[in-house]
């Protein structure tokens, strides 16, 4: 389902924002987790995004 919209999907802006907001919540959660374990700044952010590659 995710792949469909990543590759060739087109969402209307409101739905896109809704989806992005939900995604950001999980990314922020992981970033907080990494920062809590000593990583901060770019390393925490990079590790978080690595999970969703």
């Amino acid at each position: 389902m995710m792949t469909k919209f990543m590759l060739d999907g087109a969402l209307n802006p409101d739905l896109l924002e809704k989806l992005n907001s939900a995604g950001r919540v999980v990314l922020d959660w992981f970033e907080d987790l990494f920062e809590g374990r000593g990583a901060s700044g770019k390393p925490a952010s990079s590790r978080t995004h690595f999970l969703f590659r």
Binding site: M1, M2, F5, L11, L15, K18, L19, A22, G23, V25, V26
Partner: peptide, 11 residues
Amino acid sequence: TLFVDALVRGV
């Protein structure tokens, strides 16, 4: 909308 709601619920 249904699709996005399903994804948001999953998240």
